[in-house]
């Protein structure tokens, strides 16, 4: 009996000390983690819109009573018609994970930019949505300052219309195409697929296409707000 108590007591003491030290670390790091997350979101938003716009958060209540937060970007000091566009966060079911992304839409319903916030797709295939094309190689670029380039998969969404379905071209990857070929794709409202990861590609185009409803909802909300103010 005595040993049972002794065993339980030792384990309890160890578990308590362990729990307390984890709690202490949590208190020290949780603020930084939250800051980190807000900062990540803010820099993603800033990268989507042109420089020098004012970004503010807003939200609306959707038809199914859920709250939809979104961000509006305005040209400062320009009065009437100063809205550059708005951005919202959404997700799509990818191959092995949910792909969360942030999309910025212009006043004429075209994509200003889109950026993937989080994904856990297959390394080497689906994760290539984050791949950037750079001329730097291991031999000359290791110690050079790395320029920040937008992933090619995400750049091809620029100026794609959200209200029309987005097509997928499987011929070649966007970053290998010429200027004319890129323009041709854009006129057909198409993006190129990542080789070997069409499921991931389709997940993102499908997700954006289904969000056309969200886009019109935000547009209506902004229009009614504008009307109300006048």
């Amino acid at each position: 009996m005595k040993t049972t108590i002794q065993l339980t007591a030792t384990l309890t003491v160890i578990a308590t000390v362990a729990g307390l030290s984890i709690g202490a670390t949590y208190l020290r790091t949780s603020d930084i983690i939250n800051q980190q997350k807000t900062q990540q979101l803010n820099s993603a938003l800033e990268s989507l819109f042109p420089d020098g716009v004012e970004i503010s958060q807003d939200s609306l209540i959707r038809s199914d009573n859920s709250v939809l937060p979104f961000w509006t970007a305005k040209q400062p000091n320009k009065g009437e018609g100063n809205l550059v566009g708005f951005a919202f966060e959404s997700g799509g079911r990818g191959y092995s994970s949910t792909i969360r992304y942030l999309a910025a839409i212009s006043a004429d319903n075209k994509i200003i930019g889109m950026t993937v916030l989080s994904q856990e797709e297959t390394p080497g295939l689906g994760t290539r949505v984050m791949e950037t094309v750079s001329k730097a190689t291991f031999w000359n670029g290791l110690f050079a300052k790395r320029e920040k380039t937008e992933p090619w998969f995400q750049s091809q969404f620029r100026n794609i219309s959200v209200l029309n379905p987005i097509g997928i071209s499987k011929k070649a990857e966007w970053h290998t195409l010429s200027k004319d070929q890129k323009a041709e794709l854009l006129s057909k409202n198409e993006v190129t697929a990542i080789t070997g990861a069409t499921i991931t590609t389709k997940a993102i185009t499908d997700a954006i296409t289904t969000e056309s409803k969200t886009v019109s909802e935000i547009n209506e909300f902004l229009a009614s707000k504008k009307g109300g103010l006048q």
């Binding site: 040993t3 065993l7 030792t10 384990l11 160890i14 578990a15 362990a18 729990g19 030290s21 984890i22 670390t25 949590y26 790091t29 949780s30 930084i32 983690i33 980190q36």
Partner: peptide, 25 residues
């Protein structure tokens, strides 16, 4: 008699700490 659970608690605490520090920095 209880060394394995005790070791596991110690290891798991270190792992959780690493996890949080890594998430922060």
């Amino acid at each position: 008699q209880v060394r394995i659970p005790a070791y596991i608690i110690v290891i798991a605490s270190f792992v959780t700490i690493v996890q949080m520090v890594m998430q922060a920095y």
